[in-house]
Simulated assay, not measured.
Amino acid sequence: MRTFIAALAGAAALLPALVRATTAQPDPTDAAAPVPAVSVPSALADYQPYRDQKAPPWQELNRAVTSAPGKPGMSHGQMPAGGAGAADNVHGSHHEESAK
């Protein structure tokens, strides 16, 4: 413990000498004060312009979407009419009753 305190005391004694060893900053009000050179990299140094990729014509894209093989779809002509889904639709049955 004594060596630790001695080391702290020695460092405290050297501290004023270390503070004076730093370089003094020039006076900010002096117009003739030397200014260090600043090197700032450009924000656009690594910029690569966007390049459109070759896309197929819209007719080919439409054909690929409308006739996808292996994916059966349901067109409006194939919608169920009065099947099992009709029993779940109870909204229409309320309007069919006559008012008394």
Rank of each mutant, 00 (worst) to 15 (best):
M1L: 09
R2N: 09
R2A: 13
F4L: 12
I5Q: 10
I5Y: 07
A6V: 07
L8M: 11
L8G: 14
A9K: 06
A9R: 02
A9F: 13
A9W: 01
G10D: 08
G10H: 01
A11V: 08
A11D: 02
A11K: 04
A12M: 13
A13Y: 02
A13C: 03
A13D: 02
L14F: 12
L15N: 02
L15H: 03
L15P: 00
L15M: 12
L15R: 03
P16A: 00
P16T: 01
A17I: 04
A17M: 10
R20V: 11
R20T: 08
A21G: 15
A21L: 15
A24Y: 06
A24C: 04
D27H: 02
D27G: 03
P28Q: 02
P28H: 01
T29K: 13
T29H: 10
A31D: 07
A31C: 01
A31L: 10
A32G: 14
A32D: 15
A32F: 05
A32Q: 14
A33P: 00
A33H: 07
V35C: 03
V35M: 14
P36E: 14
A37S: 12
A37C: 03
V40T: 14
P41E: 13
P41W: 03
P41I: 06
S42L: 11
S42E: 09
A43W: 05
L44K: 03
L44M: 09
A45F: 03
A45V: 07
A45W: 02
D46E: 14
Y47M: 04
Y47S: 06
P49R: 05
P49D: 07
R51M: 06
D52H: 06
D52K: 07
K54C: 01
K54G: 06
K54Q: 13
K54A: 15
A55L: 15
A55R: 15
P56G: 06
P56C: 02
P57N: 10
P57Y: 03
P57D: 15
W58K: 12
W58H: 05
W58T: 11
W58R: 11
L61I: 14
L61S: 04
N62E: 14
A64T: 10
V65M: 08
V65H: 02
T66K: 13
T66C: 04
T66V: 12
G70Y: 05
G70V: 05
K71M: 08
K71T: 08
P72F: 00
P72H: 04
P72M: 00
P72D: 12
P72I: 00
S75I: 00
H76G: 13
H76K: 12
H76Q: 13
G77N: 06
G77R: 14
Q78T: 10
Q78C: 02
M79N: 06
M79Y: 09
M79G: 04
P80R: 04
P80H: 01
P80I: 06
G82D: 04
G82T: 00
A84Y: 01
G85K: 09
A87Q: 11
D88C: 05
D88I: 10
V90K: 12
H91K: 05
H91Q: 06
H91T: 06
S93F: 03
S93E: 08
S93P: 00
H94K: 09
H94C: 07
H94S: 09
H95V: 10
E96I: 11
E96P: 04
E96A: 15
E97W: 03
E97G: 03
E97V: 07
A99Y: 09
A99Q: 08
A99V: 10
K100N: 05
K100D: 10
